[in-house]
Design a protein around this nucleic acid. Structure first.
Lengths: 147, 147
DNA sequence: GTCCCTATTGACATTTTACACATATAGTGC
DNA sequence: GCACTATATGTGTAAAATGTCAATAGGGAC
């Protein structure tokens, strides 16, 4: 998508841009953690299944979101010092987190419906312009005086 | 939706929060302008049809987006001094703006599909937890040693 | 003139996001 | 012990996006 941090024009190659949904990392992490309690570094790779390209998500972002969610009470963590290497902070979803995720789901549903309505409006407009006023851009020849 | 500027907890009343899609105002304004070239103040009310509640969008935000889009070349404007009251800046969509909107549509389509996949994953998880491991939260009884 | 409605613009604060950097542990080779 | 690498977590900061508020200005009603 052009503008903002995702480029600067039409000439883009494909769906290369990151997420369009704000704070989408939160529900993704919750869903992953709900399936399996694990630590941040491990979650990093699992995020691919939600469309995050391999190098897209910075680790620090994931860690920050996890800590924020713990502070909010959606997840809880415990240090895991059993395996080799540095200790891991293993997160799991709390009951509040479950509720929070459910709210997210509801929100995403309505967002999706909203998108659908928008696309439908666009499609309807296309059809109308294709038949009723071909070649015209809408609002042509108005009463504009100043320039 | 909890967190951020839209509250701070589960106990919300309905879909009171604004958009979840970043920069959504842009395509909305483009779509409205494509149907009818008009000025910012007039667009303010028309935005309701895209789910923006009456008092949700500040006028200055709309004006800013319009000016940004003009700078980018997606819309062009002309002063209309014909009617009574202060002069209006009438915007219309350019050819580049048409292309830009088409890109937006494509992006929104993929975003919607992404949401659908996410919701589906959630639903599948629900079903699996309901049948396979009832009452368990996933990852219970792991090899966590440290506290 | 003053108040209100229309219409636009600018300035500032907050929130979100991206990116760079710093820390700590364990294993390997020397 | 020391350098080096991989794993794992954390902080700081700048940029971008968004929200809020104030200011300006024309015209009509009173």
């Amino acid at each position: 998508m052009p503008r903002g941090r995702w480029g600067s024009g039409i000439g883009f190659g494909g769906a290369a841009c990151p997420r369009r949904i704000s704070r989408f990392l939160e529900p993704c992490l919750l869903l992953l953690l709900r399936e399996d309690a694990t630590h941040g570094y491990n979650l990093l790779e699992s995020l691919r299944q939600f469309g995050f390209a391999p190098g897209t998500v910075d680790a620090s972002v994931v860690y920050r979101v996890l800590r924020e969610m713990e502070e909010a009470g959606w997840v809880s963590s415990q240090w895991d010092t059993a395996g080799s290497g540095p200790p891991r902070r293993v997160y799991r979803v709390t009951a509040d987190g479950e509720e929070y995720l459910a709210v997210w789901i509801a929100d995403l549903r309505s967002t999706r419906d909203e998108i659908d309505r928008f696309i439908e409006t666009y499609t309807r407009q296309e059809a109308a312009q294709g038949s009723a006023k071909p070649g015209q851009k809408a609002g042509e020849g108005d009463h504009v005086s100043g320039g």
